[in-house]
Design a protein around this nucleic acid. Sequence first.
DNA 1: CAGTGGTCTAGACCACCAC
DNA 2: TGGTGGTCTAGACCACTGA
Lengths: 249, 249
Amino acid sequence: MADRDGREGGETDVVGFRPLYRQVKDMLVRRIADGRWQTGQLIPSEFQIAHELAVSQGTVRKALDEMTGENLLVRRQGRGTFVASHDDDRVLFQFFKLSRDGGEREFPDSDVQSVARIPADAAVRAKLALPAGAFVVAIRRVRSLGGERVISEMIVVPAGRFAGLEREEPIPNNLYGLYAARYGATIARATETLKAVACPPDDAKLLGLDAGTPVLIIDRVAADLEGTPVEWRVSLCRTDSFHYLSDLR
Amino acid sequence: MADRDGREGGETDVVGFRPLYRQVKDMLVRRIADGRWQTGQLIPSEFQIAHELAVSQGTVRKALDEMTGENLLVRRQGRGTFVASHDDDRVLFQFFKLSRDGGEREFPDSDVQSVARIPADAAVRAKLALPAGAFVVAIRRVRSLGGERVISEMIVVPAGRFAGLEREEPIPNNLYGLYAARYGATIARATETLKAVACPPDDAKLLGLDAGTPVLIIDRVAADLEGTPVEWRVSLCRTDSFHYLSDLR
DNA sequence: CAGTGGTCTAGACCACCAC
DNA sequence: TGGTGGTCTAGACCACTGA
């Protein structure tokens, strides 16, 4: 690598030492973030990357291993290393935690109620770190498991970053795949806040419940590779015969 | 190592090849599981373990790194590698997901209502994989955050594995620390199932709520290093000004 | 200062896959 | 058969800690 953190002269770093493999990792993450490496694509072999960056193969390996651990890459022995894609299975496993009691995990269907480009109010701007005057695209939809309506949700994304999303037709079931493929936005992490509340009348109607029935409310902010918030989503879920699964490790 | 997976003769493994570093890891995990390495204890250095097992230092490092990633070990540069302990901070971070809206994470207080040794009913036996006729110790307690009652919970553990727990006095706030210190049971993982329900009258009284208020119900089964279920816990949580936090990565 | 974990390298060989 | 990732080794040097 060009300079190896500027340590060639042998001076002691007082602060801010960054291991070589992390610098390599940052460089490779950037290649995904800015779209030079597309979702699902085969990336160069360890040896090629090592040669290109003038670094040993072991250092590249450590960077790739960390990225694999963060679900950014998928490695397949004998074939190569691929940029992870937001296919249904991954999204299901990583981001969809609701399933039928006693049932297998299952990808939900979606029934879009409305899509609109609207000004962001203060609450939305706070969640997505947007400036005053920003616009957002808001989607309302109902999701079903096994034909039964289970989730009523509202999704909000910045209109600037997702220009034209409100004219997308149809709105796909798996939104994170769309974000990556059409807008170069890779969802890497999300933070969910859960509460139990009485179901409001409008959502109750959509879900076929009595108003006031206890439902789970999931407030999610999803972020991209740089940690920038990209989507705010509030989901009301019936949990009479469904549940939210959380694995603590 | 004694045999290195029996591959010395150079024969091809048709099935069941297990990398050396995993065999090392299994061996070291067993030392924690059976109490030869106690919680919080300093373990031998990489070099010493490598020499003892006749394996290279890099192989030991890979085993230790995996164990560190699973929160079984804590490594401190310049000092050594330690068996992770269930101190308040770790339990708070890894296993306690409820906090006040807008507040910092905080360790809850406990107010024990009852402790009893009782026969396990069918539901309990199913959760903890116990045979017919088994006994359990059941604990009921109320937990508070900042002086406010927030959680009403029931905890059930096998009486065989935790002999005399019902006579423990006092029942400590941090149970997982007690499990490790007195009964050699390290809680390594837990699976939580969440639902929103109407609060039953008894719990409502304990939490100072109106019966029927929506509350979050958390059904947790906690397992030890071998994956054996060790504890079943059902927690009713008020979420009017509190929330459950789930990080998706 | 000695001892620990952390990083980096170089090279060997194995397991797997596609051609 | 060649190329990929996966494992294992050996050794050098760096960064941190505590006596």
